[in-house]
Lab assay of single mutants.
Amino acid sequence: DVEEQIRRLEEVLKKNQPVTWNGTTYTDPNEIKKVIEELRK
């Protein structure tokens, strides 16, 4: 469920934690926001 994935990513973003997505770890909040934007398409 895309909405659920977006919610999880936004939670991690608020906590300033790194996100691992498709084998890539993102630590930059701007990169995480880009992943969220991609999911919304």
Results as ranks from 00 to 15, higher is better:
1 D>A: 09
1 D>H: 11
1 D>M: 13
1 D>Y: 11
1 D>F: 11
1 D>W: 15
1 D>Q: 08
1 D>G: 12
1 D>I: 07
1 D>L: 10
1 D>E: 12
2 V>S: 04
2 V>Q: 05
2 V>H: 09
2 V>F: 13
2 V>I: 14
2 V>G: 03
3 E>Y: 15
3 E>T: 10
3 E>V: 12
3 E>R: 12
3 E>F: 14
3 E>A: 12
3 E>P: 06
3 E>I: 12
3 E>S: 08
4 E>W: 07
4 E>C: 14
4 E>L: 09
4 E>D: 13
4 E>T: 10
4 E>N: 13
4 E>R: 09
4 E>S: 11
4 E>P: 03
4 E>K: 07
4 E>V: 10
4 E>Y: 11
5 Q>L: 14
5 Q>T: 13
5 Q>G: 04
5 Q>S: 08
5 Q>K: 06
5 Q>E: 08
5 Q>I: 15
5 Q>R: 04
5 Q>W: 11
6 I>H: 01
6 I>N: 02
6 I>M: 04
6 I>D: 02
6 I>A: 04
6 I>S: 01
6 I>T: 02
6 I>G: 01
7 R>S: 07
7 R>G: 04
7 R>N: 07
7 R>Q: 09
7 R>F: 04
7 R>K: 12
7 R>V: 05
7 R>D: 04
7 R>I: 08
7 R>P: 01
7 R>A: 10
8 R>P: 02
8 R>T: 11
8 R>G: 07
8 R>W: 15
8 R>I: 14
8 R>M: 15
8 R>S: 09
8 R>N: 08
8 R>F: 15
8 R>A: 14
8 R>D: 07
9 L>T: 01
9 L>R: 00
9 L>N: 01
9 L>W: 02
9 L>Y: 02
9 L>P: 00
9 L>K: 00
10 E>L: 12
10 E>H: 05
10 E>Y: 05
10 E>V: 11
10 E>K: 05
10 E>I: 09
10 E>W: 04
10 E>F: 05
10 E>G: 03
10 E>P: 00
10 E>M: 11
11 E>H: 06
11 E>Y: 02
11 E>M: 07
11 E>S: 08
11 E>C: 09
11 E>D: 11
11 E>L: 05
11 E>P: 01
11 E>V: 05
12 V>W: 09
12 V>S: 15
12 V>R: 14
12 V>F: 14
12 V>T: 09
12 V>K: 14
12 V>I: 10
12 V>Q: 15
12 V>D: 12
13 L>W: 05
13 L>R: 03
13 L>A: 08
13 L>F: 07
13 L>D: 01
13 L>K: 02
13 L>N: 02
13 L>S: 05
13 L>M: 12
13 L>E: 02
14 K>N: 11
14 K>F: 10
14 K>T: 11
14 K>G: 09
14 K>C: 11
14 K>R: 14
14 K>W: 07
14 K>D: 13
14 K>Y: 10
14 K>E: 11
14 K>L: 12
15 K>V: 06
15 K>F: 10
15 K>R: 12
15 K>M: 14
15 K>E: 11
15 K>H: 13
15 K>T: 14
15 K>I: 06
15 K>Y: 11
15 K>S: 14
16 N>Y: 04
16 N>K: 12
16 N>T: 07
16 N>E: 06
16 N>W: 11
16 N>H: 12
16 N>S: 08
17 Q>W: 14
17 Q>K: 08
17 Q>H: 06
17 Q>I: 11
17 Q>P: 05
17 Q>F: 15
17 Q>T: 10
17 Q>Y: 15
17 Q>N: 08
18 P>K: 13
18 P>D: 14
18 P>C: 14
18 P>N: 12
18 P>F: 06
18 P>V: 10
18 P>A: 10
18 P>M: 07
18 P>Q: 10
18 P>S: 13
19 V>S: 02
19 V>L: 13
19 V>K: 01
19 V>I: 14
19 V>Y: 08
19 V>P: 14
19 V>N: 03
19 V>W: 14
19 V>H: 04
19 V>C: 13
19 V>A: 08
20 T>S: 15
20 T>H: 15
20 T>I: 15
20 T>M: 13
20 T>R: 10
20 T>P: 03
20 T>V: 14
20 T>A: 08
20 T>L: 13
20 T>Q: 15
21 W>G: 11
21 W>I: 15
21 W>A: 14
21 W>D: 07
21 W>R: 11
21 W>C: 15
21 W>P: 11
21 W>K: 11
22 N>V: 02
22 N>D: 13
22 N>G: 13
22 N>M: 09
22 N>W: 13
22 N>T: 02
22 N>R: 04
23 G>P: 03
23 G>S: 02
23 G>D: 14
23 G>H: 03
23 G>Q: 02
23 G>M: 00
24 T>I: 15
24 T>H: 14
24 T>P: 01
24 T>C: 07
24 T>V: 15
24 T>A: 09
24 T>R: 07
24 T>Y: 09
25 T>D: 06
25 T>G: 03
25 T>P: 02
25 T>Y: 14
26 Y>K: 00
26 Y>E: 01
26 Y>A: 01
26 Y>W: 04
26 Y>V: 05
26 Y>F: 09
26 Y>R: 00
26 Y>G: 01
26 Y>P: 01
26 Y>Q: 01
27 T>S: 11
27 T>A: 06
27 T>W: 12
27 T>I: 05
27 T>K: 05
27 T>P: 02
27 T>Y: 09
27 T>H: 09
27 T>R: 03
28 D>V: 02
28 D>I: 02
28 D>G: 04
28 D>Q: 05
28 D>H: 05
28 D>N: 05
28 D>S: 05
28 D>C: 05
28 D>A: 03
29 P>F: 08
29 P>E: 08
29 P>A: 09
29 P>Y: 07
29 P>I: 09
29 P>W: 07
29 P>M: 14
29 P>L: 07
29 P>N: 05
29 P>V: 10
29 P>G: 06
30 N>Q: 10
30 N>M: 12
30 N>I: 13
30 N>T: 09
30 N>D: 15
30 N>R: 09
30 N>W: 10
30 N>E: 14
30 N>A: 13
30 N>K: 08
30 N>V: 13
30 N>P: 03
30 N>Y: 10
31 E>Y: 03
31 E>W: 02
31 E>L: 08
31 E>V: 07
31 E>N: 03
31 E>D: 14
31 E>I: 06
31 E>M: 09
31 E>K: 04
32 I>D: 00
32 I>F: 07
32 I>H: 00
32 I>R: 00
32 I>M: 03
32 I>A: 03
32 I>P: 00
32 I>Q: 00
33 K>A: 12
33 K>V: 11
33 K>T: 08
33 K>I: 10
33 K>G: 06
33 K>H: 08
33 K>C: 09
33 K>F: 07
34 K>S: 08
34 K>F: 07
34 K>R: 10
34 K>T: 06
34 K>I: 07
34 K>P: 02
34 K>N: 08
34 K>M: 12
35 V>D: 01
35 V>N: 00
35 V>W: 03
35 V>P: 00
35 V>T: 02
35 V>Q: 03
35 V>I: 15
35 V>H: 03
35 V>S: 01
35 V>F: 07
35 V>Y: 04
36 I>S: 00
36 I>Q: 01
36 I>N: 00
36 I>D: 00
36 I>E: 00
36 I>V: 04
36 I>L: 14
36 I>K: 00
36 I>A: 01
36 I>H: 00
37 E>H: 08
37 E>Q: 10
37 E>V: 05
37 E>Y: 03
37 E>C: 09
37 E>S: 06
37 E>L: 09
37 E>W: 03
37 E>K: 06
37 E>F: 04
37 E>R: 05
37 E>T: 07
38 E>I: 12
38 E>G: 08
38 E>T: 10
38 E>D: 06
38 E>H: 11
38 E>A: 12
38 E>S: 12
38 E>F: 12
38 E>C: 13
38 E>Y: 08
39 L>E: 01
39 L>H: 02
39 L>M: 13
39 L>I: 05
39 L>K: 00
39 L>W: 03
39 L>N: 00
39 L>Y: 03
40 R>M: 08
40 R>E: 04
40 R>C: 03
40 R>K: 11
40 R>V: 05
40 R>I: 06
40 R>Q: 07
40 R>Y: 06
40 R>F: 04
41 K>N: 11
41 K>W: 05
41 K>A: 13
41 K>I: 09
41 K>G: 10
41 K>R: 13
41 K>T: 09
41 K>S: 09
41 K>E: 08
41 K>D: 06
